[in-house]
Design a protein around this nucleic acid. Structure first.
Lengths: 151, 151
DNA sequence: GGATAATGATTCAAGCTTAAACGATACGAG
DNA sequence: CTCGTATCGTTTAAGCTTGAATCATTATCC
């Protein structure tokens, strides 16, 4: 998986790590999320349900911030989940700009059933690394994701 | 960035590493690719141009395999690049099922100008890790991306 | 208190992405 | 050679995603 790129040693090293990071995230993500089709859930929909399960009701702004998505996206995903009866949306009484999204009973049942499958799939994929290596991967990802300088 | 999830220690560890992997790839990818807007290129379009630059002309099937994208996607991205005069498509004479995609002179000029910027952005982001850590990250990503068992 | 600015949600246009269905082409068994 | 199968590209429908524009609501400043 060399890069076929002629540049400085530092550039080649960074490029190589970057490509592997992107491809790993994409490949593992696709394999992990394959089971979502069983319940006709998209990755975005699953993300919203999971956030609501583990964090409780949230306004769409906070939901978007958590999931790194735009407000317009939250509106659309919320529309679909609401149409399926999995979430309920309600204007906040104190500040009528906010729309609070919460799981319905059906939504809670669904995500409570789907999430363990998801966690199991992740554990299965990450079993390619020893526990200590999983921790190391997490640490490196966190640092590069934050975007802080090296020293 | 804890997971708010109650499961076995192994599951929590895997989930934590998985989330950090996905978020790192997303955050770093977004920052790295921000410069593409300068030339009105999407990530998918850039990927095709870059593959053609470093690998030479390819049929759409191989292009899709390289970029982990479907054939339908290659057709659409190819349409847009062709409309902009950045690539040329030609039926293979020997096997008329294949369509070979190649850079035009304009396409080559563009990607030759854009790619160094991209490599520089990647080097800048990866500078959050020391060289040795970049290599370690690449190795871990490669192993987990491959999906092979641990030992 | 009233004008102005900021914020949250929605809508829209554009493009990406996939899966499935389809047509054209090539290959292989008989 | 011919029929059946496999492969490649295209099309289509559905949904995701973004950025920009817009509307309603709230906060701020004088």
């Amino acid at each position: 998986m060399g890069t076929h790129f002629r540049g400085t040693a530092a550039q080649v090293r960074a490029l190589d790590a970057y490509i592997k990071l992107q491809r790993a995230a994409e490949s593992v993500g696709a394999r992990v999320c394959a089971h979502l089709a069983t319940d006709a859930l998209t990755v975005g929909q699953f993300g919203v349900l999971e956030a609501l399960l583990h964090l409780g009701p949230l306004c769409q702004r906070d939901l978007g911030a958590k999931l790194l998505r735009t407000g317009g996206n939250m509106t659309m995903v919320g529309d679909h989940l609401e149409a399926r009866g999995l979430v309920a949306r309600r204007r906040d009484a104190r500040n009528r700009r906010f729309v609070t999204v919460a799981l319905t009973a059906a939504g809670r049942r669904l995500i409570a059933r789907v999430f363990p499958r998801h966690a199991a799939a992740i554990a299965h994929e990450l079993a390619a690394l020893r526990p200590q290596e999983q921790v190391a991967l997490g640490r490196l990802c966190r640092r590069v994701g934050r975007g802080k300088p090296a020293e």
